[in-house]
Simulated assay, not measured.
Amino acid sequence: MPSLLRFTGILALLGLVGCAKLPADPAASPKIRITLVGDSTQTEKQGYGTGFCANLVNVDCVNRAKGGASTKTYRRDGLWATAQFPKPDWMLLQFGHNDVQSASHGDRETDLATEYPANLRRYIEEARVAGIKPVLVTPIARRYFQADGKIVDDLPGHVSAMKKVAAEMNVPLIDLHEISQRYFEQLGEIEAHKLGPTKAGPNGTTVPDKTHFNQQGSYVLGRMVVEAMGRTVPELSPYIRPLAAKP
């Protein structure tokens, strides 16, 4: 299983660390609240939520992510109203995996050309009206490796649509999709799958869960998101632990 030291080394090679200047004493900054809003890849049990919160200092880190949520169901199921209380200073919004139109998603799916970006815009507008600062996070890459060691990008349209909304509405954007895909490819298929759990496969086999994360994966990816947040929103860098948290 890759260590956090190896994780930092790989990010350094990719140019993804060392950009956010951290103060000597993060705890000296005024306390703030950051809320995670999204799907299972942000949650505490299956996503990077635990590792994300563990890498923050002097932050009330609230996880409102929900497995299976899309931009449509998150509002429909009353989760959006809940996510605004207690009121966060900042909100990281990450949707896409369950907005994809497919037979398995049923009423979760949204139209990529119209509904998905419209839903994102509405979340942003309502957050701002409530005095919350939104940050968009592109959906994390799945670990769908090809024979050549490259990952099949199954969400290019959603990533592109989110980037367009971010640009139009002047919202900070963390391109977690690109960052995570580059990281997984650098790790390689075997090591990348160690960041996630396993699940039942056909005929009684056990196969890697290529979407979700175990505890080690939560801390590795959580640190990745925190570092990216510090680069994207420099005013949040004082709240990042200088050294990566460990499980």
Results as ranks from 00 to 15, higher is better:
36 L>A: 04
36 L>N: 00
47 G>A: 06
71 T>D: 06
78 G>L: 12
42 Q>A: 11
46 Q>W: 03
33 R>A: 08
61 C>E: 09
65 A>L: 05
41 T>S: 05
35 T>W: 06
72 K>H: 14
60 D>N: 15
80 W>M: 06
71 T>N: 12
79 L>W: 15
60 D>S: 15
58 N>P: 09
78 G>E: 11
51 G>A: 07
82 T>K: 15
36 L>I: 02
85 F>L: 02
78 G>Y: 07
77 D>I: 08
46 Q>G: 01
33 R>N: 01
44 E>D: 10
46 Q>H: 06
41 T>W: 05
87 K>D: 00
64 R>A: 13
81 A>E: 13
82 T>Q: 15
45 K>Q: 08
37 V>H: 01
70 S>L: 11
74 Y>E: 13
36 L>G: 08
31 K>Y: 01
69 A>G: 10
47 G>F: 02
48 Y>L: 11
80 W>Q: 10
44 E>Y: 00
53 C>I: 07
79 L>M: 14
46 Q>F: 04
46 Q>Y: 03
57 V>W: 09
42 Q>Y: 07
72 K>E: 12
74 Y>T: 12
71 T>E: 10
47 G>C: 02
74 Y>H: 05
31 K>G: 09
33 R>L: 01
66 K>W: 01
81 A>V: 08
45 K>W: 05
61 C>Q: 12
79 L>I: 11
59 V>C: 01
70 S>E: 09
34 I>G: 05
74 Y>M: 07
70 S>I: 11
84 Q>W: 01
45 K>N: 06
83 A>W: 01
40 S>Y: 05
45 K>D: 08
35 T>E: 00
52 F>N: 02
71 T>H: 13
51 G>Y: 09
71 T>Y: 05
38 G>V: 15
57 V>M: 06
59 V>K: 03
72 K>F: 11
64 R>L: 03
76 R>D: 14
41 T>G: 02
60 D>K: 13
66 K>D: 09
57 V>C: 12
69 A>Q: 14
87 K>R: 09
46 Q>S: 06
44 E>C: 04
39 D>W: 08
60 D>G: 12
55 N>R: 07
68 G>A: 15
62 V>D: 11
73 T>E: 10
53 C>T: 09
50 T>H: 06
50 T>W: 01
81 A>M: 05
67 G>V: 10
86 P>D: 03
42 Q>T: 09
42 Q>I: 03
32 I>D: 00
87 K>N: 02
82 T>C: 04
84 Q>C: 11
71 T>P: 12
77 D>T: 10
81 A>G: 02
82 T>H: 07
64 R>Q: 14
44 E>T: 06
67 G>C: 07
37 V>Q: 13
66 K>S: 10
53 C>F: 12
40 S>N: 02
69 A>R: 15
44 E>R: 04
43 T>Q: 05
45 K>H: 05
